[in-house]
Amino acid sequence: MSDIRLEGVTRRYGTVAAADNVDLAVAQGEFVTILGPSGSGKTTLLSLIAGLNRPTAGRIFIGGRDVTEATAQERNIGLVFQSYALFPHMTVLENVLFPLGVRKITGAPARARALEALKLVRLEGLQDRRPSQLSGGQQQRVALARAIVFKPDILLLDEPLGALDRKLREDLQVELKQLQRTLGVTTLLVTHDQEEALSLSDRIMVLNHGKTQQVAAPTEAYLRPANRFVAEFLGIANFVGLDGGRTGVVRPERVRLGPVGVDGGRSARVVEAVYLGQMVRYHLALEGGEGAPIVAAAPFVGKAWQAGEPVAVSWDAADIWPVA
């Protein structure tokens, strides 16, 4: 187990910088998520850390050791891809034994360790199956077992749950988080799913066009986004004008709705009310029509505002966070 440190890491393809002067420090045992839209450089950054790709500039440290020039084989990293990348001709057990065999661990001790890893990912009894005989979720568990069985210094996961359907993805998120806590392994996960990032990680690194936008705890990044991009990428953002031509962001659940003319607020009309189970999301048009529509979210407690109804909209000044 080790910490990770990136110093000015840059990777250029022609004139495009897929990773642009990225600094990051991940503490030992920490779970950090790299979040960004497709093409923002997440995979590039992960492959640079894994040693599958070489930076154009900058240095990479794992456990204090400068690994910038080290090969992938020398880095002792557990790697999991969205496509599982299991060895198709090997059984589940053989897949998990592979990294042990490479390290000259064989026989009964290797077998015991492999079965232990399979137990950790809840795949007991499936060790003799082939990958093609498993569901997507099971295949990804095998990939996870194979990535942790040799006690890697760090764990790198590139959209590991991206190919799974929603329910399974949520279950596996919980398991992944528990597994990471049990093992205490430093983990870097890549995703474009903001909910996944918010729910899994100790800290989030938001990436756009290869550049770091913000590195912060989930609540911090959500409530105090460093800029407009982060505000919009992490959930729904209402932008409101501030004094001096500046812009602030208010999150939907901080927007209060009330009957018109009771305790002030700006009058608005409900354009749409979207029922989401625990919550109702309102799209509101402010009277006078100026500015973007406001989105509010309120817990559903039996009664909801209907489309077309007039409402009074308000928020506390303390709930506004300036972004530009």
Partner: peptide, 25 residues
């Protein structure tokens, strides 16, 4: 290609990867 990349990250040399992972497939 990710299957090869995973093999390298698991510590397998280029030669081992070709012999034990690619050629059987």
């Amino acid at each position: 290609p990710r299957i090869e990349q995973v093999a390298w990250s698991l510590g397998a040399s280029w030669r081992t990867t070709v012999w034990k992972v690619m050629l059987p497939n």
